Structures are given as structure tokens and as C-alpha cells.
Simulated scan of single mutants.
Amino acid sequence: MKTIELHIYLFPELSEEAQERALDDQRFTNVDSFWWDNIYEDARQIGLKIKGFELENGYYCNGEFTENACFCAGKILDSHGESTETYQIALSFRTERDRIIADWPKDEHGELASTGDLDSELDRVEDDFLTAIRWAYHSLLIQEYNFLTGDKAITETFEAQDCHFTADGRIATRLEKLANVPAQNQEQP
């Protein structure tokens, strides 16, 4: 039998160099799976279904309205703060849409003239709104990803999970578990 003594440390106990290594080695620990769920849920609540996104190669966010553009804008204006990008986009859409309708030529009876052209113009404004909202959610996904892969969030994860490290900053969770295996499970000489 051989006995090995190994000292393990909590993240704040590591040297600055070891902390940097630990952070770099675990950079993607918070984005292993489904980190985007909260943003998808927020989009769902305003009437937007996000169908996929890419943050590096291709750089896109695909989505479609589950209701209609006016419903989506109303939900955003009711639930997102005035300082958010999505609120400003929804407000701009609603203002432009209302202006188009108010300024549209009327016939001799005061009814909207050439409603086919009006529908085409409103479709264009709605398409522009959808494009802008998808880009806004793409920005939210980038911000969330950058936060989750940043030093602060990773450090918080280390603390929340009570992670231990070797002196050089390598994660020691498996070593700690191995050391705590009950004696009856260990091989006898």
C-alpha cells in the first residue's frame, strides 16, 4: 500500500497564478448546457419563439412571432423596462406603424385607400421589427454568454460548488472524492 498526501485548496487560497489557471481551465463550466433557457423563456413570454442562434460562426438568431407583431410589441412595452433595447425597438415599431396608418391616404368616404399597398407597407414594418427584435435577443444571448464565461461568474460557481484545487490551480474534485471512499471499498493488500 502506498499513501499519498496531497493538499487541496479553495479558490481564494490559491496564488494569483494558480487562480488564473483555474479560471482558464474552467472557462466554460457555466455554459456546458442550456445556459440560454432564461432568455428563450423571456422571448416566449413576449410572443417570440427563438429557434436557434450562433454567437461565433454565422452570427445569427433565428426566431418567429408566435402571435403577431402588435401582440409582441405590446408585451414588451408592458413587461420590459423603458431603458431596455427591446422596449425602444417595440416603441419605435408601434410609433412607425401608427404613423403609417394615420398618414395613409383616405378615399372620399374617409376610409383608408389602397389597403393592399397599406398591408404591404405594414408587413415591411413588421418584418423590420422582427429582424430588430431577433438582433436584440442575439445581443442578450451574447451578454449572458460573456457574463457566464467571465471571471466573476466562474468564481461564484467555484464558491457555490465548494470546489477545491491543487496548488497549481487544477480542479481537485475527483481527488477529494477518491480520498473519501470508505475503507471497505478500497482494495486490500
Rank of each mutant, 00 (worst) to 15 (best):
M1P: 01
M1D: 07
K2T: 10
I4P: 00
I4Q: 12
E5H: 08
H7Y: 06
H7M: 11
H7E: 15
Y9S: 00
L10E: 15
P12R: 07
P12H: 08
E16F: 06
E16K: 14
R21L: 12
L23H: 03
D24T: 14
S33Y: 08
Y40A: 09
Y40Q: 07
D42A: 14
A43S: 04
A43C: 11
L48C: 07
K49M: 07
K49H: 05
I50N: 02
K51T: 15
K51C: 11
L55V: 10
N57D: 11
N57Q: 13
G58C: 04
Y60M: 00
C61W: 02
N62C: 03
N62W: 09
E67G: 11
A69M: 02
C70V: 13
F71C: 03
F71I: 01
G74V: 01
K75N: 14
S79I: 01
S83Q: 10
T84C: 07
T86S: 10
T86A: 12
Y87N: 09
F93T: 05
T95F: 06
E96C: 08
E96N: 14
R97I: 02
D98N: 13
D98P: 00
R99G: 01
I100M: 10
I101P: 08
A102S: 11
A102M: 05
A102T: 05
D103W: 02
D103G: 02
W104Q: 06
P105I: 11
D107W: 09
E108D: 13
E108Q: 09
E111R: 15
T115R: 14
L118S: 04
D119R: 13
D119Y: 06
E121V: 10
L122H: 07
D123V: 04
D123M: 14
D123A: 13
D123R: 02
E126Q: 13
I133F: 01
R134N: 15
A136S: 05
H138G: 00
L141Y: 08
L141A: 02
L141N: 09
I142H: 05
E144T: 15
Y145K: 07
N146R: 15
F147N: 12
L148I: 06
G150F: 02
G150W: 01
G150I: 08
D151V: 03
A153W: 02
T155S: 05
T155G: 00
E156N: 09
E159F: 01
D162H: 12
H164E: 05
F165A: 10
T166P: 00
T166H: 03
A167E: 15
R170C: 03
I171E: 06
T173N: 10
T173Q: 13
L175S: 07
A179Y: 12
A179W: 10
A179D: 09
A179S: 12
V181M: 10
A183S: 12
Q184C: 04
Q186I: 08
E187V: 11
P189D: 12
